[in-house]
Design a protein around this nucleic acid. Structure first.
Length: 119
DNA sequence: TATTTGACGCCGC
DNA sequence: GGCGGCGCCAAAT
């Protein structure tokens, strides 16, 4: 089966879908988790593919390491991304996530040790 | 088949 | 401190 390449996206989709409600992550964090720390751009590509993948991944929860909604332009509606983030309690001003450090979610949190506090 | 782009990240100037 | 260039892997043209 040609799932080898699919696994790459699968891992990304899985992580993005695991992002808790009201939390966001960065391309670099996902890339680093997959081992492609230098290939942060690959994550962006995967997101593009994820748009026609189901279920749709909450790509709106994925932003660059600056906390800037760089990918909002690729959404159906630019306002949609910011709107979704605000709807989850995330404050976004000028396409910039406020309290980014507070809402930032790292895939490393997938560690079993952290699962204990996961609701 | 080869070249360029791409929703980024980091180092250097 | 702000701006630019280079590097990463993969896909699209």
């Amino acid at each position: 089966m040609n799932r080898k390449k699919n696994q790459f996206y699968e891992s990304i989709f899985d992580i993005v879908r695991l992002i808790p409600h009201g939390r966001v992550t960065t391309y670099g964090a996902i890339a680093a988790y997959l081992g492609t720390k230098s290939g942060s751009r690959l994550v962006g590509w995967a997101m593009n593919v994820s748009h026609h993948e189901e279920p749709k991944v909450p790509a709106h929860r994925v932003v660059n390491r600056n906390g800037l909604l760089t990918g909002k332009a690729h959404f159906k509606d630019e306002n949609e991304m910011q709107k979704l983030l605000e709807a989850e309690g995330i404050v976004v001003i000028n396409n910039q996530i406020q309290n980014f450090n507070d809402v930032f979610w790292d895939p490393a949190s997938l560690d079993p040790a952290s699962w204990d506090r996961v609701s």
